[in-house]
Design a protein around this nucleic acid. Sequence first.
RNA 1: GGGGCGGUAGCUCAAUUGGUUAGAGUACCGGCUUGUCACGCCGGUGGUUGCGGGUUCGAUUCCCGUCCGCCUCGCCA
Length: 610
Amino acid sequence: MLKRSHHCGLVRAEHAGESVVLCGWVNTYRDQGKGLIFIDLRDHSGLCQVVFDLEDVKPEVVAASRALRREDVVGVKGVLRRRAGDPNPKLATGEVELLASELEVFNKAENPPILPDEYEAEKIAEEIRLTHRYIDLRRPRMQQILRTRSRVTKVTRDYFAGHGFTELETPCLIKTTPEGARDFVVPSRLHEGSWYALPQSPQLFKQILMVAGFDRYIQICRCFRDEDPRADRQAEFSQIDLEMSFADRDDVMTMMSGFTRTLWREVLGHEVGEIPRMTWRDAMERYGIDRPDTRFGLELRDVSDLAAKTEFAVFKDALAKSRAGRKGCVKALRVPGGAEKITRKMLDAYGEFVKGFRAGGLPSAKVAAAKGGASAGAAPGGIAFETGCAKFLEPVAAELASRLSLEPGDLVLFGADHWDVCTKALGELRLRLGHDLKLIPASAWNFLWVVDFPMFDWDEEGKRWVAMHHPFTSPNPDQFHLLESDPGGCLSAGYDLVVNGSEIAGGSIRIHRMDVQEKVFTLIGLSSEEAEGKFGFLLRALRHGAPPHGGIAFGLDRLVMHLCGTENIRDVMAFPKTQSGQDLMIGAPGPIDPSQLDELHIRPAMPTPT
RNA sequence: GGGGCGGUAGCUCAAUUGGUUAGAGUACCGGCUUGUCACGCCGGUGGUUGCGGGUUCGAUUCCCGUCCGCCUCGCCA
């Protein structure tokens, strides 16, 4: 077998004159006739032109080289030389070519269903690319992404090893937990009728590792959640999972800010500065979302008090609403220059858009310069409202103008509904406006810690509190007293790391006292018997010497998406699944043999597949 | 579970109001071509129009069902 001496993409003019063996895939072939054949040979490093001078090689090489087709895998031996023809400025190796003397065909490729050309890849249906993933992954872009992913995990391990973290593994076959996402389950052969569950995260194990005295833990682990996938979500995904003992919220955030800075420096050469903090309340009120994209303004402003002074039924109705102890509200979004930029058609589309988030509609008004003097509707600030719900706004025009810093030419959009509906609808609309009006600077990296989350959300259906993060999250130290008196107002010691409006990590300081943990279980409607049954091991651990501890988990896939600038999580996974959870390459999931079912004590409700 | 878009040659797409033998580019096969580099020129093979039903003299086109892919709401502690 020909042994490779260089990589295709790395040969340069300085290697001219050397005897060289290149191995790789035939990217393209150009048969010039009886005397001359060119091929571009590709490996992970790039392309190099190989030339066969048919009058100057052995007959078997003539035949074999004429038969070369795209994606054949070959080794070529020859002398590297400066090109006899014009250099190709498009190739890093464009100054040189390999003059072939020997050719070994390792593997003749059948006519490829797809080609790993970036030129074609964008057009080829993803379904086809996933089916033939071994070819799609040959694309330089996919190679670059997955190598970046490898670089990320390397930097991660180095950073945390350098800070005293121990890499430990936790089991994949565990048991179901009552809270959280739907579990993937695995039937037990040895225990009839019993089931394992795949971990949604190693949460409890890492806490127990802290109780066990490991001080600092890291794992790059696979997590499983049986929920519908999205562009940035897969049922099976990877986390950088961490936990620290004797640490408070600031300790964890400081450590992780350092990690983030290291990662962005090492992978992108970008210097991340101090990462600012924002309270959850601030994020929700100003951005309508718990992971604000702070790369652009367009902030929401509460105008409930002014709306109350109008006779607008939409506002009145909203303010009269109440849910989970929280009154309805009216919020405004000022779009500078929007009176002209936002066409009627766009406005209608935005109205439909917010309805998708259960808002009733999108009241709006244009801002114009007040007509000279004291005409009706003119505010002292020199503006007047036109169109839409303008006439209802007249009584509060001056106050609105001042609160929203309105100027002629602006457009004002209103959300009026339950607090959660109103904030979410306007928050999503803000993002869409930012996109549509091109307000988002593409090259910016805006990091943000979101802190002071509520401990609990009120579940209207179940009539109970549910943990906002997870039931092991501790209240902030100054909030413990609210646990009983005002659970809805109690803030947690949780924190999320957000970049450009995307949550890349989330964690919390954990409860390390059994009595507090039991209290939280009770609050979320878990009886002591249930808690003992589901989490007895944790409670026992907390009785036997648990250090204060806390941690975080980064979404590895999303990190890589950001670092590579992709918008699709499947692009950063070697073998992703489709939205229906299928692996199109291997054909999973698939039927299993009835005897396997018997062994597992399972009788399917569906007819046995044939 | 809901909404939207899509499925025609290996791949990317076209096909008028429901009307001739479903076309083009590319890939592939054959021939030509000694400096190409998305090589070029000539010729050729290639189709269960996702699948199943229905309407019709006639369906890629219209209707019903179903499967698959993508985006999205719900969901994702």
